[in-house]
C-alpha cells in the first residue's frame, strides 16, 4: 500500500512572525523553519500504521523551494521511505499545490493521502479537500483516529458539535487534527542517518496558476490596553458599567 504524506515547510510556529514595514512580505530573518506540525502528525500516523503491521511504503512530498529539503530530511528521519521535492519558485496557493499533488498521486499509484488539516503559516485548511475533489476520492478531514483494514480506512473525525466516524473505501484523503497522535521526537543522529534514503528533486508536473495571492501583510489592529481589577466586586462593577452583565 502506498501512502503519500505532503509536508510543508513553515516558520517555527512558536516564533513571532512580523510583516515587513512595507507590507510586501514577512520578515523571516533569523526564523527557524519546521515541518508544519499538522503534517508531522499525519506522517507519524502513517509510520504508526506501518508499525502496526500494515505493509506500507511512505512517500513524503513537498512543493516549493530548494530549502524544503530540510523538512523532507526530517520526514525521512521520522520514517518516510522516500521523499520527493517538487521544486519551484512559482507563486503557490492551495489550488496549485493540490494540482501538483493530484498529478503525483496518480503517477505513484497512491492509496492513501495523509496530510495536515492546515498549515500554521497560512491557516488555509484547503489542500486536502481540493485534492480529494480533484481526484474524486472520499475525504475525512479533522481526523482524530485512523484505522486501515480490508481496503477501507475508518476515520474518527472531530466536528463542530463533537465527533463522527467515516468509513471509506480506499483510495482516500485524510487530514490530521491535533489529537490524532503525538509525533515522536527525532534526534539529530536520526536526521543524519536518513541522508542515505532517496530524495528526488523534480520540476512541476502541471501548469496550474495560483488563484489567490497575498498582496499585503500587516499587523492586526491592537486591542485597547486593559486594566487589572483588585477584587471580584470591582470586576462586577466594571462589567455592569460596560453593560455586558445585568
Amino acid at each position: 500500500m502506498n501512502i503519500l504524506v505532503p509536508v510543508k515547510r513553515v516558520p517555527d510556529p512558536y516564533a513571532k512572525v512580523k510583516p515587513l514595514p512595507d507590507g510586501s512580505g514577512l520578515d523571516t530573518a533569523g526564523l527557524k523553519f519546521e515541518v508544519n506540525p499538522f503534517d508531522e502528525i499525519a506522517l507519524e500516523e502513517a509510520v504508526r500504521l506501518r508499525e502496526k503491521g500494515l505493509p506500507a511504503s511512505i512517500t513524503a512530498v513537498s512543493v516549493g523551494a530548494a530549502e524544503c529539503e530540510e523538512q523532507l530530511r526530517k520526514a525521512l528521519a521520522m520514517g518516510a521511505d522516500q521523499a520527493i521535492l517538487v521544486e519551484t519558485s512559482d507563486a503557490l496557493d492551495s489550488s496549485v499545490v493540490a494540482a501538483e499533488l493530484a498529478a503525483l498521486v496518480l503517477e505513484l499509484g497512491i492509496d492513501l493521502v495523509l496530510m495536515g488539516k492546515q498549515a500554521t503559516d497560512d491557516d488555509a485548511n484547503q489542500v486536502a479537500q481540493l485534492l480529494a475533489a480533484k481526484l474524486d476520492w472520499p475525504q475525512a478531514t479533522f481526523a482524530s483516529a485512523v484505522e486501515v483494514a480490508d481496503g477501507r480506512v475508518v476515520v474518527k473525525r472531530e466536528t463542530d458539535t463533537g465527533e463522527e466516524t467515516l468509513s471509506m473505501r480506499l483510495p482516500a484523503v485524510v487530514s490530521a487534527d491535533l489529537r490524532l497522535n503525538e509525533p515522536r521526537y527525532i534526534a539529530l543522529p536520526g536526521i543524519i542517518k536518513a541522508r542515505s534514503k532517496p530524495l528526488e528533486r523534480r520540476p512541476r508536473a502541471t501548469e496550474a496558476v495560483a488563484k489567490v495571492r497575498v498582496v499585503f501583510y500587516e499587523a492586526p489592529p491592537a486591542r485597547e490596553p486593559g486594566r487589572k481589577v483588585s477584587s471580584v466586586d470591582e470586576l462586577v462593577a466594571a462589567l455592569k458599567d460596560r453593560g455586558v452583565i445585568a
Binding site: 492551495s94 489550488s95 491557516d123
Partner: peptide
Amino acid sequence: SSMRSKDILARTAGVLDAAMVTD
C-alpha cells in the same frame, strides 16, 4: 466559517475549480 464549512466549501471549490478564501 466552521469546521463543517471548511470541509465542504473547500471541496466544492475543488469541484468547481474555483478559488477558495478561508476566514
